[in-house]
Design a protein around this nucleic acid. Structure first.
Lengths: 193, 193
DNA sequence: TTGCCACCATACACAAGTGTATGTTGTTAT
DNA sequence: ATAACAACATACACTTGTGTATGGTGGCAA
């Protein structure tokens, strides 16, 4: 079950391009123009190579698209997984930490745009829809477990989880003019009643 | 201030194409593939005409893009405006009506996909960003007024408005597997404390 | 050193989209 | 009935992107 890709020895540092470099570049243009903008020639120009490099690492455009989905699923699954493992503090404290996640850094904005593009993509692509559905399920169950650990019933915890998820998404997608940092207030509003 | 477009008399029913027909068709492909997929030739094929029709009604592609934004602003502004006028019942009842808006009909799914595409577009286009910012502001202020009419303070009303908006967006964008109709529960959760 | 091979460039044929210039048709006005 | 015009089709030149086939280059092993 080993990888069938005969990679070179680890002597050459980073002069040559990797398949993951193409996927990372694809994430950039995906965030800017959607999946339809993920084209090979603009990507090659951005990476400073020709399309000959692409067709060495990938079969065609569709292969890159599936690689994008696979990488996104992996990253987001790992993101939640590492959060589950680090159960260092109380659940209500972890809730506040979740709501206080950075959402205005360039890194966070890029991730939000990528996810937005994938959700739009999921409207007319079965595989993208499966990926989004899976990640939504993973996140919602994690948030629900957070609330059940705080003593809430299962039904109530799932409602709160949905509201928490909604708040996080809205913080990323909605243009709040006054930039009010509602994270602390939202935590209070979600824990209270 | 009359329209400077010398339209033909109302004798011919619908045999000829209108500029708005192009914009409506553009909304369809916008919902499916983002703003980058709004191309003239595929649109012409879908509408059953050639590009000669397009270049009669519009100057170029960018003109169509601005027309899309203008039409979206108009539609969404009208949508909120008509809701403000119809103050027939109590604010808490109107809140429930807002949360019970249809979100699974093809019409609603199309509107959600269009808005998703425009939000992604707003990431790298100034005019699109202005439109989204404006509509977000209009909706948030309307929801906040709803809560102040229910007796809440201004600061609290704005937090609830954000949560309400977040819930509506999440209902449209998140893939909830069990399709739990959380609208009634969300209304209770937002009104309660 | 020489031969292999990973990696990329180059060249070619093809498809699709853009803009413009111009031809064509049906309708309205006189 | 015929000139005028709105609305679209057609043809052309150009650009951009795709996929493939093939050529070139540097490093590593024997």
């Amino acid at each position: 079950m080993a990888s069938s890709r005969p990679r070179r020895a680890d002597t050459t540092p980073a002069t040559t391009l990797d398949a993951t470099a193409w996927v990372e570049g694809a994430f950039d243009v995906l965030a800017e123009g959607g999946i339809d903008a993920v084209r090979i020639e603009p990507l090659a120009k951005r990476l400073g190579v020709t399309r000959g490099s692409f067709y060495w690492h990938f079969k065609d455009r569709e292969t890159l698209h599936t690689a994008i989905l696979k990488e996104w699923r992996k990253q987001q699954s790992y993101r939640i997984g590492s959060r589950i493992e680090s159960q260092s503090c109380a659940p209500d404290e972890r809730l506040k930490q979740t709501l206080a996640l950075p959402n205005s850094t360039p890194r966070a904005k890029r991730a939000a745009a990528i996810e937005l593009a994938i959700r739009l993509w999921a409207g007319h692509d079965t595989n993208a829809a499966k990926a989004v559905k899976h990640i939504d399920h993973v996140r919602l169950t994690y948030y629900a477990k957070l609330f059940t650990e705080m003593g809430l019933a299962k039904s109530e915890a799932r409602k709160r989880a949905f509201m928490l998820y909604a708040a996080l998404l809205a913080q990323a997608y909605v243009f709040t003019d006054s930039e009010t940092d509602v994270s602390a207030d939202l935590a209070a509003l979600l824990v209270r009643p």
